[in-house]
Every structure is written in structure tokens, then in C-alpha cells.
Design a protein around this nucleic acid. Structure first.
Length: 578
DNA sequence: GCCGTTTTCGGCCCGACTGTTTTCAGTCG
């Protein structure tokens, strides 16, 4: 069973599947151990093969959650490309059955029942069976489950072969770095949907300015990790990477770089519109430049072209033909460097991977002025959510670290408490009041009716002790739809109550999505970007939140963690009541 | 299978809810 992706991701997926399998066999404790290792390996910065090469088995065992047994399995995979225990499972369960188990409402146990009873071994055979109504009569299944299965399959079909912005961004950074090592490369940039920072990316486009296209192309098609060369020419080459994504490279002359970048960044709709403007001015715009008759007026930079067309230079994130061309006042978009703190971080206290002190030090390295610890609370047993007593204990620790780090950073204590079915939360109000800020989010019973879920969130927003709503729509990209909510109503109440909506930067969520951010901004609802880091390196998810905010036309003034600590605190509901 | 400022062995992964059941699987991160 071969899985696409870098070695850490491959192993994480194998360990996750072993965990799923053991859980379906009712094995105790081991699934948790495997799952933990899967999480910790996938958040490693270094490839396990490198750790093994440099430090051997001992190095592997220093990875959190890895003991002797799992270290040996990692070693086996590095040496042979296989984990024999996992191969044994593969003989019992076809890979398609694991896929089926990803559908909401189906776990590996039910998938195995379907395999045994109806010989269902992939999505296709599952869909056929559900449509024929063969599933509902099975013991333990029913009409609603069958309906859920069909909805789940439909959702899976819409996601196509796209990868997340986070994954595409990191791959592109790596490739750009390699290409930049060539002295023949004069300019380089990503283009396409990646440059526009869309949340999912079909393929990666890269544009290079160079006088020696052949050298650049030869180097490009010899990069490590290529599984297929679709085509190689003087100006355009296309490859497939082992991560399962295609990369297209175009090499142009420096004179054409701006026009090529503009053309290949898109969007198509944006390009059509600016070409029409060119025509209306008696000009012609293409990927080689901007022309009046045969005379070339420019094309070296994007700015030059926009200026000839009488437009301001539009940031790529806005180029969707959603009003940016007509807009008189182009927003001065938020930038990563504007961010002064991260208020959504989980610590070791609730099952995160790092001590508060380590998170604080990472925040100092990131240049933040403040950092907030917002651990889950007690309703989420599986996350070891904190109760009132533990919050009081945690405060003591935070106070102590604040003294140690005085002058370097300020730590705040918050929590991410749970909005229960009736809109109340799982921590007593008087304890919430003692915190510096409170985030509340929905983490359970996600399939409520639209009215009930809207009411549930609104009740929480009306609570004077709740400052921020985390991941307000609850979607997981490619995995789970939003809660059914009346978002307009939620915006209205957010504005009235001064509740802040989060833009969750985790690549799995990116919630709020771009159109909601733009809508919130237009109404004047304040937002905050949180990394939702469960491991210190994940604080970099802030950047993906900033991308998302930029696509939503957000400026510094719309995002409250771009404010200095004092201004930020003054904006919180708790500090703003008469 | 991992882990140790109580431990090198005995803890760890709990509970409320939904759908479909009459005991259970799956979902929330």
C-alpha cells in the first residue's frame, strides 16, 4: 500500500491507519499511542529519514511519542519502504475501505461490515449500493445513515485533486529556493491561484526571468522528487511531484516578466476585464507586454502595465473580478508583519505539544508583542480540557513566566471554551471573568438545524464574558461542511455585541473563508487571526490566516491582533462595558 | 505502545449525544 507525500506524511498516514485498525479491533491504549506519533511526525520540521541518518534509532526515539517499537517501524520504512505490521492489515482490508471510513458517519468498523456483507471496497461500489438501498436494511444501519453516505460521497466528489494552500505554499517555497541557486535565474515568482492565495490549489505555476531558458529548464526537470515529466520545452515545462501535484514552469525574458506574471497570475476573469480596458484605450495587452499598434509601451513590471491602463497596482489576492477593478479606493491589505500577537495557542496543559514557556519563546522569535494561551476546557475530555481549578493553577504559571520574560513579551491567559447545545459554556461565568480574554467555539453536536445552531452561537455572543468566537463556521477543508447557520444574523449580533470573529489560520480550517471576511469587514465586525497551534511550529499558520484575510480585503484596522497590546485589550468586550 | 519532579510497571482513552438499536458505533480535537 503506497501513499503519496513526503516520508513524514507517508508514515503519519500509516500510523493513523494502524491506529484506526487497532481501534476497530477494540485494542486499548495502543491506538492513542500510534495516533499521537502520527501527529507529532507530521508536525516535524525535519524528515525522519534525515534524523535517522544523522542520529540513528536514538534520534528517532527523541521524537515525542516514539519509543523503541515505533522507532523500529520507522527504521523499517526508511530501509524497505514498508511497515510489515501495516502490510498485514492491508491483506485483510483493501485500501478503498480506509477511504470509505473517512465519510462522516462511517468508521472503519462499519466500513469493514460493508466490505464483508456487500463486498463494498471503494467509493464507487458504496455509491451503487446506497443508491440501490442495499445499506439501510443492514443490521446497525438505517435510512438516515444511507442518506448521510450519499451526501458524504457527493461532498468527496466536489473536492477533485486540489491541495491546500499551506501544502502548495511550502512546496513552492522549496522549489523556488532550489531554482534560485541557479545564477541564470534573474527573477522568480509563483503565479496562478497560489499567488492569489486561494485556499485550495490545482497546480503550482512558477514564472522565471532568465536569459538562458534551456539551462533553467534542464535544472528544473532534474529536481529531486519528480515522478513524471509531462513536457519540457524552451519556455514551458511541466512536472509531477511525488506529493501528487503538478508544477508548471515558464521562463521569459526580463522585459516580458511583468506581463507574463500578470497573465499567468490571473484570474482569468480579471485578465479578460483588464484586456477589455486596454482595448477601450486603443491598446493591446497580452503575456508579452502592452502595445499601441506595433509599438511596445511596457511589460517589464505589473505596476507599469496597470499604470498604463490607469489602474492602481492590484495585489494578486484581489484579482478575481469581484469589484477590484472598479474600486476607487484599493484597500491597503494587512501584512504578516502587522501581526502583533497570537491569541489562539494550545499548550501541554490540554494535550498540546509544548510548555507555555516554549510557546512564549517561539512568540518572541516571531517578533510578537503578546501571546495568548487558550487551552480547551473540560467538556472536551478527549483534549484533556481544563476545569475551573486547572485554569486557576495555569494562571499562576503564566504569571510566573510573565515575570521571567518581562520586557520581552506579555503572556495573556484565555481559554477556548465550548458552546454547549443551549448556547451556555462549560466554564463558570465567575471564572471566565478572571481570564484576560475568552474564546468560545462549537465542538460538539454539529448537525443541528440552521435555526438551532444560529441561536446557539448568538446566545454565546450575547454573553459578556465571551470575547471571541473561534472557527465560526466549523468547516474542515475537504472534510466537513460548515454548520448550518444564518451567517448574516451572526454578523449582525457580532456587531451589536462587539464580539470578535476569528479567522482560524489552521490549513485544515481557514475559517472564516474569504467572502465571509469581506462581508464582516463591510459591516464593521472586528476579526482576529489565530493560528490554533497545538505545536509551537504551527504558530506559522498565522501566515495562512493573513493570506485568507487579504483575500477578504482585510486591512490592519479590521484585524485586532495587529493592534498594540493596550489597544487590543481595550477592544475586548470585557474591558469595554459600561 | 509510550512514559516517568509520585513510577522501569501500571497508568493511559472520557463522556454526552445521534442514529439505530435494545447494546453499539461513530462524532466531536
Amino acid at each position: 500500500m503506497k501513499i503519496k507525500g513526503g516520508i513524514n506524511k507517508e508514515l503519519a498516514e500509516i500510523f493513523n491507519k494502524i491506529a484506526d485498525y487497532l481501534r476497530s479491533q477494540k485494542v486499548e491504549f495502543k491506538p492513542h499511542a500510534y495516533q499521537r506519533v502520527a501527529i507529532s511526525i507530521s508536525s516535524l520540521e525535519k524528515e525522519v529519514s534525515r534524523i535517522y541518518k544523522e542520529e540513528g534509532l536514538k534520534g528517532l526515539m527523541e521524537i515525542p511519542g516514539v519509543g523503541e517499537n515505533i522507532a523500529l517501524k520507522i527504521e523499517e520504512y526508511i530501509k524497505t519502504g514498508k511497515v510489515s505490521d501495516y502490510e498485514k492489515i492491508g491483506k485483510k482490508i483493501p485500501p478503498g475501505v480506509f477511504e470509505i471510513a473517512k465519510i462522516e458517519g462511517i468508521g472503519l468498523k462499519r466500513a469493514q461490515i460493508l466490505y464483508k456483507k456487500l463486498k463494498i471496497k471503494d467509493m464507487n461500489s458504496l455509491e451503487k449500493a446506497a443508491k440501490k438501498g442495499l445499506i439501510a436494511p443492514l443490521f446497525g444501519f438505517g435510512g438516515k445513515t444511507e442518506k448521510n453516505i450519499l451526501e458524504g460521497i457527493a461532498f468527496f466528489k466536489t473536492r477533485k485533486d486540489k491541495i491546500s494552500i499551506a501544502e502548495a505554499f511550502l512546496i513552492a517555497e522549496r522549489i523556488k529556493k532550489e531554482l534560485l541557486s541557479l545564477k541564470e535565474v534573474e527573477e522568480i515568482s509563483e503565479a496562478g491561484s497560489l499567488r492569489r492565495r486561494k485556499e485550495s490549489i490545482g497546480d503550482i505555476d512558477i514564472i522565471i526571468a532568465s536569459k538562458s531558458p534551456k539551462k533553467v529548464m534542464d535544472f528544473f526537470v532534474s529536481l529531486p522528487g519528480i515522478t513524471k515529466i509531462w513536457g519540457k520545452g524552451k519556455t514551458k515545462s511541466s512536472i509531477q511531484l511525488k506529493e501528487g501535484i503538478d508544477v508548471d514552469l515558464r521562463v521569459v525574458s526580463k522585459e516580458n516578466y511583468g506581463s507574463a506574471l500578470l497573465y499567468f497570475t490571473g484570474s482569468k476573469e480579471h485578465n479578460i476585464k483588464i484586456r477589455k480596458i486596454a482595448i477601450s484605450k486603443g491598446l493591446k495587452l497580452n503575456e508579452y507586454g502592452i502595445y499601441k499598434g506595433k509599438k511596445r509601451l511596457g511589460g517589464k513590471t505589473e505596476k507599469e502595465i496597470y499604470s498604463i491602463l490607469g489602474l492602481s497596482c492590484l495585489p494578486p489576492e484581489l484579482r478575481e473580478d469581484k469589484g477590484e477593478i472598479e474600486e476607487k479606493k484599493i484597500p491597503n491589505l494587512l501584512e504578516l508583519k502587522d501581526i502583533k500577537g497570537d491569541l489562539h495557542c494550545h499548550s501541554l496543559w490540554n494535550g498540546g505539544q509544548n510548555k507555555i514557556e516554549e510557546i512564549a519563546k517561539t512568540a518572541i522569535e516571531r517578533g510578537y508583542e503578546y501571546i495568548g494561551i487558550s487551552d480547551h476546557t473540560k467538556f472536551l475530555k478527549i483534549e484533556r480540557g481544563l476545569d475551573e481549578k486547572q485554569l486557576i493553577e495555569q494562571r499562576k504559571e503564566i504569571d510566573k513566566i510573565n515575570v521571567q520574560l518581562k520586557g520581552r513579551i506579555t503572556l495573556l491567559q484565555g481559554c477556548e471554551c465550548n458552546i454547549l447545545n443551549d448556547g451556555s459554556v462549560d466554564i463558570q461565568e465567575k471564572e471566565l471573568r478572571k481570564l484576560d480574554y475568552v474564546i468560545a467555539g462549537v465542538h460538539s453536536n454539529l448537525k443541528m438545524s440552521r435555526d438551532e445552531m444560529t441561536k446557539r452561537i448568538i446566545t454565546a455572543m450575547k454573553n459578556p464574558n465571551i470575547d471571541i468566537i473561534s472557527h465560526p463556521t466549523g468547516r474542515l477543508i475537504n472534510l466537513r461542511e460548515e454548520y448550518r447557520i444564518d451567517f448574516e444574523k451572526i454578523l449582525k449580533i457580532a456587531k451589536e455585541t462587539g464580539t470578535i470573529l476569528e479567522i482560524n489560520g489552521s490549513p485544515y480550517r481557514l475559517d472564516l473563508k474569504d467572502i465571509y471576511i469581506r462581508r464582516a469587514k463591510s459591516i464593521g465586525v472586528k476579526m482576529i487571526i489565530g493560528s490554533d497551534a497545538h505545536e509551537k511550529s504551527q504558530t506559522r499558520f498565522m501566515e495562512f490566516g493573513v493570506f485568507q484575510a487579504r483575500r477578504g480585503w482585510a486591512e490592519e484596522k479590521d484585524i485586532i491582533n495587529s493592534f498594540s497590546l493596550n489597544k487590543f485589550l481595550k477592544l475586548l468586550k470585557r474591558n469595554n462595558q459600561n
